[in-house]
Design a protein around this nucleic acid. Structure first.
Lengths: 332, 332
DNA sequence: GCTGGTTAAGGAACCGGTTCCACAAAAGAA
DNA sequence: TTCTTTTGTGGAACCGGTTCCTTAACCAGC
């Protein structure tokens, strides 16, 4: 492997000149030609460490994720990776397995590795997080959660929750179950629920809405939904993620409830598989990949010292499919 | 941030001594104590670049994947990341979007970044791959595909294909469709099909097996399966991945074919969602996460110059669920 | 023709570690 | 006691870049 000194020697110049050539300093046309030729011939490419040693920074963006086995995460990562490649960065992935302690640890480890920036697919922002962000002195971008002190990219969960709540309410449902997750996850657990509740209160009268909680796991959701059908027998179940909705559909099937005639079910996310289900699932499609693109662009700008909006919203669409029915019972 | 020189000065020794202390050279008990204390107090941790500059190597393992939006990939990555963390390595992920050119490019780019080793979730091994492996002089581990010249970890697709073929054949099916993917993907496209075909020929008589091809996409699979039902009307459809099976189930539903009484369907992979479908899907569960663990352990050993088996098989289980029925038509 | 400003290029120091070498002191062998 | 051998330590070079400082050359203006 050739070094900058080799190139300099072959081209008959000093290594500082080669360095200047590479980094756009003032070099005469003549010398430029010479150096260019040598680099071409030798296939020289600078050693990233030596550069980083001096610059105290890499071209690596660290991405911290709570879990890898999630559609939302995968898609977001795809988007991030795609855009980062274009911008000449690399993506270092660190999975925390939903362990908050490990999340904090990872922030420091990545900082030690001198990544240029950190994208955090967060579920919660604690004081420990804020402390870490301050200490490391590296740009951080939050995705999926919002905090005033940090650059954030969120999926506008509240508005999306409102949209689906309104849709269900307008379809005449009067007994609606909301199957969600812990409010510790502000975006998924709190905001979606809040938007939904708001919509229902505004767009329907005489509605009984009940709120149930489970984990992110399909099978837990199926179990919880099973109980919920017995306890409450709703005409619609609004789920906080598509996985929960898949679980709920399973439960309905096991209880011999037909979807959508006996019970309507909606999801949240827009996972590919929701189109394939029987019946296909009405859901909110969140543009995760696009959000990933934006996240990558933003962190790159932050790294370069440019400014980006403190808070950005990603897009969503309501996807209307077969799993929701209109209820006219109350009109009889 | 403190440097080794600072530590040396504070402890009143030479930096070479501190370096020796850190790397296990000969240092007296007394000096050890002194240095230990200073490091403790200052929270010193060595600069990774300076180390890498000299060592010409990082503690980063590059992982090249064809796509991120796949259950198999996610799970494998989870396993890899989990084990790598334990072994004190980091995982750098590079997505190629199933573009072979980009795969080759990535190998060189990672090599330039001086990753310690490369794990390649391969779909195909071309001469360009082999050439790249040779040139970069970095340990490479292939996952999912096998090649004699490279360390490989494969999912024993042929045996698994055989297992499911045998199972279907023994259930009395006589018209069996195999819905697969291009043979360019040796593991998924070729081996699974081959194992299946072998089993059918050994365990059934008077069988008509037909082979159909589609892409990895659920919706393409649904479309292809729809045609296949018209052309061939099989009593069983064996699919090369769970996603294809999900598509096939959708198609069956659209054609008003009941699963499993009209047609049996099987998958391959063991994705979580297959348990949630109606009916639940009979499939082969491949232990992707476990395979990821093994892959990480192996690449770490290779990096350290230790030896591992040239070829390792990961485990699989047949998961019997509701989507397969017994056929007794031919006994009438 | 002399002074001053601009541009191109070389030399050396520096980033923060590791490692080789030399040397002194302590330990073991003769 | 004297002569190796071992052990611990410091100093310096090195890894491969970047950047600051100097100097030389060139051109313009007075």
């Amino acid at each position: 492997m050739k070094t900058i000194a080799d190139i300099a020697k072959i081209a008959g110049v000093a290594k500082s000149t080669v360095s200047r050539y590479l980094n756009g300093g003032s070099v005469s046309e003549e010398t430029k030609k010479k150096i260019e030729l040598v680099i071409e011939e030798t296939g020289y490419s600078p050693n990233a460490f030596a550069q980083s040693l001096k610059a105290k920074k890499t071209n690596i963006i660290g991405t911290i994720i709570p879990r890898l086995d999630s559609y939302a995460t995968s898609r977001t990562l795809m988007g991030i990776d795609e855009r980062l490649r274009e911008l000449n960065y690399h993506m270092l992935v660190s999975n925390t397995d939903q362990d908050l302690t490990r999340e904090i640890e990872n922030i420091y480890t990545l900082a030690k590795q001198k990544v240029a920036g950190i994208i955090l697919l967060a579920t919660e922002v604690t004081d420990a997080h804020l402390k870490a962000f301050q200490e490391i002195d590296i740009p951080v971008l939050l995705v999926g959660q919002q905090h005033d002190n940090v650059y954030s990219l969120v999926h506008d969960d509240e508005t999306a929750g409102y949209a689906i709540g309104k849709y269900i309410a307008q379809r005449g449902h009067k007994k609606i179950a909301f199957l969600g997750v812990s409010e510790y996850d502000v975006a998924v657990g709190l905001k979606r629920k809040k938007g939904f509740a708001q919509a229902v209160s505004e767009h329907a009268v005489d509605v009984e809405a009940r709120f149930f909680e489970t984990t992110f796991s399909m099978s837990d959701a199926a179990e919880r939904a099973g109980q919920l059908f017995d306890e409450f027998s709703p005409s619609a179940v609004v789920c906080a993620t598509d996985n929960l909705a898949i679980g709920a559909m399973k439960a309905a099937y096991q209880k011999k409830l037909h979807v959508p005639t006996d019970v309507s079910i909606t999801g949240f996310g827009g996972y590919e598989v929701t189109a394939m289900m029987n019946p296909s699932l009405t859901t909110v499609h969140i543009h995760f990949t696009e959000a990933g693109h934006t996240a990558a662009s933003h962190i790159a700008k932050l790294v370069k010292g440019e400014d980006v909006p403190k808070l950005t919203y990603s897009r969503f669409d309501l996807i209307l499919r077969e799993s929701v029915d209109i209820r006219t019972d109350h009109l009889l």
